[in-house]
């Protein structure tokens, strides 16, 4: 069971306090988009065996959503960042690159 650091309230808590929210940075297209674009938004997910940018909510804690960069197999956590960041901060990208280069 994961140990997760919530960037919103600073708590490091076990996974049972959190709710997973699936893949992060999914773009919600407007109502004029094509069927294919809408289907991509609704249904297409990466589901990698590897680095995953994902959404979590501190459901039993501060209630806030945030992002986490995590390896789905080793469960290594590369970092957490705020829900309103549209891409991971450079420091997390660097960390991912460093840890996955070998």
């Amino acid at each position: 069971m994961l140990l997760i650091h919530c960037p919103c309230c600073g708590v490091e808590a076990e996974e049972t306090e959190f709710a997973a929210g699936g893949e992060a940075h999914i773009h919600r297209p407007g109502p004029d988009c094509s069927d294919a674009e809408w289907a991509t938004y609704l249904f297409d997910r990466k589901n990698p065996r590897g680095v995953h940018l994902e959404r979590w909510r501190h459901a039993f804690g501060c209630g806030k959503w945030f992002h986490m960069a995590r390896h789905t197999y080793t469960l290594e956590v590369y970092g957490v960042y705020q829900a309103d960041e549209l891409t991971p901060p450079q420091a997390i990208l660097d960390r991912i690159a460093e840890r996955t280069s070998a």
């Binding site: 708590v11 808590a13 306090e17 039993f60 501060c62």
Partner: peptide, 10 residues
Amino acid sequence: LRRTRIATVA
């Protein structure tokens, strides 16, 4: 202060 759960109660 800690917001958490006791059993499954927030």
